[in-house]
Design a protein around this nucleic acid. Structure first.
Length: 460
RNA sequence: GUGGUUGUAGCUCAGUUGGUUAGAGCGCUGGAUUGUGGUUCCAGAGGUCGCCGGUUCGAGCCCGGUCUUCCACCCCA
């Protein structure tokens, strides 16, 4: 190889150690998804360009990876045309496909395409990679996994309650206690914008408000001004900046502020109901709290919105998010289908769990039993034992070469094997095998013909 | 997309105002130890200093470009 090989920026290889840990997280998430009645689907890595573009706002369009057309991709571009000067005009001419940016829009597309086969309400989950042409940082990659669960065709607030429970169960099962599920309601945000007279700046308003606890009130106000929100409007929003204390205090303050906004009042009522029912149901290890500044950028949310924050001790952006979107499939020609969904950010959850040292040590063990190789005859006896153990569902292996015993032991040690089996000449003559417990150093001999008494120790 | 930062042995990192042969710890290989790992001792191997170009008698060190890492914006899982 003349040049050192490399992989694209923001992508990663995963070695066995990491895959074991990732699969552990995915396994728990899947298990909980299925316990809650969700069924898995998968969609292609590539979608049509038009399916994705325009669904995530201007910023989103920029972050979508476009796939260059095959063959003569310039054939639709006339030489000297203006489109050569403007990428936004040029891109659709040379690209008809793009990499999946999230799992929600492809799901909406799926629902529309398969609407006649689907029994509504439809609960699906999906664990697949997505791609964003973002600049990488810690916990931010260009290729990363999302684990989504969504329900389409179900109104009411039962689903919202279920998703809060689902978040709690997954993080509890992962041993990741102390996460905060922040909830807000899009109708409250529109109500506020409407009330203060910034209705046509809803997105700018919420995006700026979202930064309140990060950059402080003054800078938020400055950003709102800069985006063209009138000063009087910002002044009217003052109660928001001072919002604090208990949930009930926040709700009464919101009621006062939003008294003349039907939409806003609806949002307050719904959020309050969700919160009180969640309190009544109880959570195992997560806490749930209202956060009026929570905005979430995606503009398709219309109802409750969620975001999960890692425990405060770990610096990390959100590790999950979601919400209700009343009419996502409308853009693909199927109006009136509501949906709610949440997403788990696998890669970030991994980093948080790593920082808190929450992965079980047993994930390191590729095999439970490892036989040393003492030579031709001995190895044959060992192989028979290995095959028998495997037939009992015990992960077992044999060192393939007759290497020096310390070297084989060292190999077993590095692989964190709990039990090493020795069948040397002595054992072969006696018809036994020696089992060494690597943690305690104790050794115990077993009759080769009574191997099952050993296997029962591992798998009763 | 904007501004900054990082890159030296398999890994973590030293490396002086530019000066001969680029170092350490861990790991690896061999030996003390032909049936006992995780502890010890001895020896050894391992480097186009990210890549390309420039300045200089001379570049790991200075300059430009590029790729990568991480950080702050933007935005987000």
């Amino acid at each position: 190889m003349a040049q050192k090989p490399s992989i694209p920026k923001g992508t990663r290889d995963f070695s066995p150690h990491e895959v074991a840990r990732r699969n552990y997280i995915i396994g728990i998430i899947r298990q909980q998804f299925e316990l809650f009645g969700f069924q898995p689907i998968e969609t292609p890595a590539m979608e049509n360009y038009d399916t994705l573009m325009g669904k995530y706002g201007e910023e989103g369009d920029r972050l979508i990876f476009k796939v260059l057309n095959s063959g003569d991709f310039l054939k639709k571009v006339s030489p000297g045309s203006k489109s050569l000067q403007d990428v936004r005009e040029l891109t659709p001419l040379i690209s008809e496909k793009a990499l999946r940016y999230d799992l929600t829009v492809p799901f909406a597309r799926y629902v529309v395409m398969h609407q006649n086969e689907i029994d509504f309400p439809f609960k699906r989950y999906q664990v697949q990679p997505v791609w964003r042409a973002d600049r990488p940082q810690r916990g931010r990659f260009r290729e990363f996994y999302q684990c989504d669960a969504d329900v389409v065709g179900a109104g009411g607030i039962i689903q919202e309650l279920e998703f809060i429970q689902l978040y709690d169960r997954v993080f509890t099962a992962l041993g990741l206690g102390g996460v905060t599920i922040k909830i807000n309601h899009r109708k409250i945000l529109s109500g506020i914008a409407e009330t203060i007279g910034a209705g046509n700046h809803l997105t700018d308003f919420t995006v700026a408000l979202d930064k309140l606890d990060k950059i402080g009130r003054e800078k938020v106000e400055a950003e709102m001004l800069e985006k063209g929100i009138p000063a009087e409007a910002i002044e009217k929003a003052a109660p928001l900046f001072e919002l604090g204390g208990t949930a009930s205090k926040q709700f009464s303050a919101l009621r006062e502020l939003l008294s003349r906004s039907t939409t806003g009042m609806e949002g307050v009522a719904e959020l309050e109901e969700i919160l009180s029912l969640t309190e009544a149901l109880g959570l195992e290890s997560a806490s749930c709290k209202v956060d009026i500044t929570l905005a979430r950028g995606l503009n398709y949310y219309t109802g409750a919105i969620f975001e999960v924050a890692a425990p405060e001790t770990v610096p990390m952006g959100s590790i999950g998010g979601g919400g209700r979107y009343d009419d996502l499939t409308g853009i693909f020609g199927l109006p009136g289908v509501s949906g709610v969904g949440i997403s788990f950010g696998l890669d970030r959850i991994y980093l948080v769990m790593e920082a808190l040292d929450l992965f079980p040590a047993s994930l390191e063990q590729a095999v439970e039993v490892f036989c040393l190789n003492f030579g031709k005859e001995e190895a044959r006896a060992a192989l028979r034992l290995v095959l028998r153990l495997r037939s009992r569902g015990i992960r077992a292996d044999l060192y393939p070469d007759q290497a020096k015993i310390p070297k084989q032991f060292k190999y077993a040690d590095r692989k964190k094997v709990p039990y090493v089996v020795l069948i040397g000449n002595e054992e072969l003559q006696a018809g036994t095998f020696m089992v060494k417990d690597m943690a305690t150093g104790e050794q115990q001999a077993y009759d080769l013909e009574q191997w099952e008494s050993f296997s029962r120790l591992l798998k009763p």
